[in-house]
Nucleic acid binder design. Structure first.
Lengths: 345, 345
DNA sequence: CTGTTAGCGCATTCAT
DNA sequence: ATGAATGCGCTAACAG
């Protein structure tokens, strides 16, 4: 298969089809195909296919000042939470002819900023950010540049930015309903960092849901972890057990924190679920294989990513749009880390 | 809606600095800065900074047909094996001013091909491929296009392409040494698909290592799985137990297959490691939390990615031919799925 | 050393 | 309906 040394351009097609390059451009672009005779359009397209013509996005971008590229900011691709989200994003973008530029920010403001600069330089048409921290004004800065932005898995309180998240409060509610139905009353939360959107909202969800069930939110029944990590979860769980020794169920801010609980329970000779029930959040890979398999709130991560991409594409398509927030529904996955409370006092 | 696109171009800088655009280009590019007077260069750079000039890589790419972009092909980002590799790649690329375009091929030849076309169109300067299958001639086609290519986690028998892999044979040898030292003699392998590089090499490694230890490679002591997946591992393990009932240790082609073994053992009422020891491969996240925690061969995935990126960058830099294939060392992580064999027989 | 010129491949005017 | 001409922003070859 003798591939021409240099890619075949619109001019090659034009020569071969006996038309002007401009006509080829029109014929090949679905948007402008109407401007050209059906027959010639067909001929051009056939020739293009035969020659294996592929439009050069770089040249097109230079002309249209669009790059058909979107930047995706995530904290760390190594965190199992993100690959499915990315997959959802890429699938949609790909279908629409866009390419994703993915960068890891490590939740570091400086890295974030420098990556943003680089993406701006590369003329990204839009941005999707899955960075977790609430305490930077990234969205504000971005808005100033005029680059369309969609937030995934977090949102701004004022709803000023397009965002797609799951209904964290609903997720926590599902967890609490579940343990309440099992008969639990002394329920605690091991909350995630409050400077993250999910951490904070799940905390609020806990308070609200407890109130809904008329349950006591007593002192020390919520412990806040500073990171979403197993060790931090283990420490938080220890504090929790110290402050609220009679708790029979723990609703964790995410699966990692729940796993930390497993460790602390083991250390203290407590059994799960016999002594204490535990519910996670996210349904990360392999939590079904822990012992006991973890009851957790499943997040439709791939759909989260897909929805974010759709939102951005929509926004890129027809200019301005009311900022809105899409809320996806989580589901509860009941496994074996939850059971009715023991009959101690 | 006129978005203030990168209003400032090289021409704006030129006007402001009272020089010709060409001079600005030279002054701003470190490579050509030597061609211009120090003073004017300084002036130009100051003006550029003051105006907030940002070079437009698209325009530059159109001219130079380099994009400072490399394409990365992986089967599926959702497979926990790949994120660390990607992270290694991106870190190095980023340091060198390159950006990665990541695509998921699902090991589908058509998808692969169309992605390649797209990347070619986007003028990627090089490619890194982590796709697993051996039965396509992707590398050959790529070589024809002249785009530098580095393979990760697989290689070609003839060593005709730059590649970085781990020493699979060594990894299997570590696993076998370990169980041999524990006293095992009747050792089986649950091999991965033989049309993948890793699956095949680990199989060869098994044969070789068994021979080295003077152990019997009897009929049925190797079962081949068609995919790297838990269910397939469970099926393979069942076949293995049927064909080789007295086996006391199983060396699996990867962690997923090993987990499948757990399932089959449980189904058959066998205990691990009391009845049968199991060794995995890859040390995926959370396999330390299985019960029992999995003894496995750890692969330095992030370094794998970093090495691949380095290799490509080197190749992009001075066209010189560095080492053909880089082999990274795996390490054995001993946990609780391996123990001395039971005293039956 | 620096100004000039000429495209890279494409989309988009304006003519015809 | 199509051809011709123009430039997107930048770099490279050639003058001066």
């Amino acid at each position: 298969m003798a591939r021409p040394r240099h890619a075949v351009t619109i001019r090659d097609v034009a020569r071969e089809a006996n038309v002007h390059p401009g006509t080829v451009s029109r014929a090949l672009n679905p948007e402008t195909r109407g401007l050209v005779n059906q027959d010639t359009a067909d001929r051009v397209m056939r020739v293009a296919a035969r020659l294996g013509y592929r439009p050069n996005p770089i040249a097109r971008g230079l002309k249209t000042s669009r790059s058909y590229t979107v930047g995706v900011l995530i904290p760390d691709i190594t965190n199992p939470l993100f690959p499915p989200i990315l997959r959802g994003i890429e699938d949609r973008l790909e279908d629409a002819g866009y390419t994703a530029l993915i960068v890891n920010t490590d939740n570091d403001t400086d890295r974030e900023r420098s990556h943003l600069e680089a993406m701006r330089a590369r003329q990204v048409d839009g941005l999707i950010s899955a960075t977790a921290r609430l305490d930077t004004d990234l969205p504000g800065e971005l808005a100033a540049t005029g680059i369309p932005l969609v937030l995934v898995n977090r949102s701004l309180e004022d709803g000023s930015v397009l965002a797609v998240t799951i209904d964290d409060q609903r997720g926590v509610a599902l967890a609490i309903e579940h343990v309440v139905q099992l008969g639990h009353v002394r329920i605690a939360q091991l909350a995630g960092p409050q400077n993250t959107s999910t951490g904070h909202r799940r905390y609020l969800g806990f308070l609200q849901s407890m109130r809904t069930h008329g349950l006591d939110v007593r002192d020390g029944c919520v412990q806040i972890c500073r990171w979403f990590a197993e060790e931090e979860g283990a420490r938080g769980c220890a504090r929790l057990l110290d402050a609220f020794a009679t708790a029979t169920a723990i609703v964790a801010g995410n699966d990692l924190l729940a796993i930390g609980c497993y460790d602390t329970l083991a250390t203290r000779g407590l059994r799960c679920p016999a002594d204490i029930s535990i519910v996670g959040f996210n349904d990360m890979p392999f939590v079904n294989r822990l012992s006991p398999p973890l009851t957790t709130v499943r997040v439709p991560q791939r759909r989260l990513g897909a929805a974010a991409a759709d939102l951005l594409l929509e926004r890129l398509g027809d200019g301005a749009q009311p900022a809105r927030e899409i809320l996806l529904e989580p589901t509860l996955i009941v496994r074996e880390s939850t059971a009715p409370p023991a009959q101690r006092s």
